[in-house]
Design a protein around this nucleic acid. Sequence first.
DNA 1: ACGACCGGAAACATCGGATGTATGGGTCCG
DNA 2: CGGACCCATACATCCGATGTTTCCGGTCGT
Lengths: 240, 240
Amino acid sequence: MSRTDEVVNGIKRMILEGTFKPGDRLPIEKDLAESLGVSRGSLREGMSALSILGIVNIRQGDGTYITNLDAPQLLAPMGFVVDFQGQGDARHIHTVRRLLECEAARLAATRITDEALAQAGDLLDEAARIAGRSPQDHERIMEIDIAFHRIIAVHADNPVLVGLIEAFAGRTLRGRLWRSLHEEGADRRTHDEHVAILRALVARDPERARTRMANHLIGVEESLQELPDDTDTNGENGGA
Amino acid sequence: MSRTDEVVNGIKRMILEGTFKPGDRLPIEKDLAESLGVSRGSLREGMSALSILGIVNIRQGDGTYITNLDAPQLLAPMGFVVDFQGQGDARHIHTVRRLLECEAARLAATRITDEALAQAGDLLDEAARIAGRSPQDHERIMEIDIAFHRIIAVHADNPVLVGLIEAFAGRTLRGRLWRSLHEEGADRRTHDEHVAILRALVARDPERARTRMANHLIGVEESLQELPDDTDTNGENGGA
DNA sequence: ACGACCGGAAACATCGGATGTATGGGTCCG
DNA sequence: CGGACCCATACATCCGATGTTTCCGGTCGT
């Protein structure tokens, strides 16, 4: 194991053991390197990796701090997986995304607050207004879409789920999806599906919310590629 | 943006743009540093991070290579999230794990090969044999458990799903779970649940497999909740 | 001709130091 | 009392030197 790995694992272990807690300031590079038995260069290589992983926050002129270590931040680096894997074949990525967001919608139905429902409604209203104007602000439409899905994810009350959804519904993938969707002029259908999801949430009906979300994302997947695939709707159809 | 971030993003971009492909050997540190306009030290900090992220593979005396960039490898660094988040409250983690593994079981039911079913059967047979002996090899039992779940995950034929499951069913979380389960003597119930899952897979019945897996993991979660967490009283003396 | 052994080149690993730069806090002055 | 300034601190970056590992090709013996 290289010195760099020793640094990374050493800091990780110290965090897990409680030596360092979120928000703590780490010893200065010189001391930390000495206590780990490595040179400053090797220490910096390790700390750099920890910084990229979202575990520590390095501030020049100040010091190095442990982040809050919440799931969304730690899962953010995973975005590259989506960026790369999604290049040739977004099917697998989107299958997972659908799974995650359907569950989020189901959970959110019974947990979402009235304020959040109002916010989501406002977002959809704004989207409807933009859709009516002539020079449609696609950028803003995309932001609204992301915000709408985010509200649902957050109110599933599971930070891990939120982190995964954020990573898997990142701007890159969204951008690709929206490009193809807009060319088909499918904005209207997408908006109607969002409204349907919101109605299910307002009704506090988990299975309905889940089904609406599944329907929405399957629609997106079909627009993305005409491959029939094996997307059989998770078997969530409430009836048969 | 720091030089290190420039290196990380630069390499990522070059990969996404096709400048470097999986398996490619990168230029030597000196040249790469020069082309990116940074010193060797800064370059190494960035490459170290990329190595931790599983994007490149650095081999001393040889060179630096782009990894195959498959999802399981890129998702592996996420294991720390599980290790840390699961410390105080494994509920959120396990909710996601259950979601992922249920879907994997459902998908695997229609895709798993006869060979894989035979392997899974052999694993469960071995577990049954170990359970019958007096000095139960808990370590091996745990390995079998992981292998069993892995076979199912792999045959869901979705590398992204596999990567997530591998990360979320890591050894650390498993270890905690198994410690509590063994103390309850719940091995038998766990084994029976595994057998039930396997039967559903043999029957190629997706919903049955999904339900069996859900039942299995819910049982595990309930066992977990009953424990007051880390007040383990260190009672691992052989006498119990 | 074939294979084992050996040596050197290549490339990463690690170290130590020197210098630049941003931050935060204490201090001094108005 | 408040704002501007100064400086110690800590990270950022670079450089050069040396160690270690791997690969490859040449050489020698059979």
